[in-house]
């Protein structure tokens, strides 16, 4: 029997030729993908690739210019409330409430979801435990370290027990230990069957937690596949030894920042430390993969 008859689960997210334009600029330029329940999908790409724009459309906070976008089988333009009620969002910026304590941040957020006070308190306590912030419950958020703030935002994104968790660069700017702690929590959530969408600049992050990657550049998806397959396909010896060519666009929204500042410094590492087989150094690969994928696309 052909594979087509195998009953496929209804996808949680379906995007078809999705477009977002800001004036002349197509921030997202006709991308299509679908995400199945339980999947952990990563969007990998340089600054300005369109990752955040995609996430914002998906979380019903930015109207699309064209194409189709459904979450939980509902059109994001028509059912934002229903969708957002079952969605957890960890935005790129830590937009916690600096006027409130750690636990108050969670309790207040629960109110926005209409969660009854008792349930909210119980969930907030559990979540603080989950992100290892129990002993910080009463502190002002401004006093927390960067990693702790990020974990608080993660906990906040889970307050409504979402079916789908969306994280925009959850570990950018954190030290290795803080990153590992977040990855470990995300893996735990994946075990529990939470569907996760994550954006990242880092190949190692993608490799650590994603089942599948969509590589974006210039508003387009230029490659998809499992992290391993993408690395072996696009980041072979040849890529490592060739002089650097086109690097994708420079950031348009953060003047002066190079695309993939993190990965750039690491590319040399691959050459030195991993000759031969097409296995990327943990911290590297992102630039390589995108570059190669762009070349092949």
């Amino acid at each position: 029997m052909p594979e087509a008859t195998k009953p496929t689960e209804t996808p949680l997210v379906v995007a078809e030729s999705l477009v977002k334009r800001y004036g002349e600029l197509a921030a997202v330029d006709g991308i299509s993908f679908s995400i199945a329940p339980g999947e952990v999908v990563g969007f990998l790409g340089p600054n300005g690739a369109g990752k955040t724009t995609t996430i914002r459309m998906l979380s019903c906070n930015s109207p699309r210019t064209g194409g189709r976008l459904e979450v939980f089988g509902l059109d994001v333009a028509l059912h934002p409330r229903e969708i957002k009620g079952q969605l957890g969002v960890v935005p790129q910026d830590n937009n916690y409430d600096p006027d409130l304590s750690v636990i108050e941040n969670l309790l207040l957020y629960a109110r926005y979801f209409g969660i009854p006070a008792r349930t909210a308190r119980q969930r907030a306590t559990e979540l603080l435990e989950f992100v290892h912030l129990t002993d910080k419950a009463g502190e002002q958020v401004d006093e927390l370290s960067g990693g702790m703030k990020r974990r608080l935002i993660l906990a906040r994104g889970l307050i409504n027990t979402p079916r789908l968790l969306v994280l925009d660069e959850p570990t950018t700017g954190l030290d290795p230990q803080a990153r590992r702690l977040i990855w470990e929590r995300l893996r735990e959530l994946r075990q529990r069957g939470v569907t996760i969408i994550i954006t990242t600049h880092y190949m190692d992050e993608a490799e650590q937690i994603c089942d599948r990657l969509l590589i974006m550049d210039n508003g387009k998806v230029i490659a998809t596949g499992s992290p391993q397959s993408l690395i072996s396909e696009h980041a072979g010896d040849e890529a490592r030894n060739r002089p650097r060519g086109r690097r994708g666009r420079r950031s348009r929204n953060r003047a002066g920042r190079m695309p993939f500042p993190e990965a750039r410094g690491q590319v040399r590492d691959i050459r030195i430390r991993l000759p031969g087989r097409a296995r990327a150094h943990p911290q590297a690969g992102a630039a390589d993969v995108v570059q190669r994928a762009a070349g092949n696309a």
């Binding site: 979380s59 906070n61 969605l87 937009n95 916690y96 006027d99 926005y112």
Partner: peptide
């Protein structure tokens, strides 16, 4: 400065 509104509109509050 606090991005409070962005945080709120990610929930069912519009």
């Amino acid at each position: 400065f606090q991005r409070t509104f962005d945080a709120i509109i990610a929930t069912p509050v519009n």
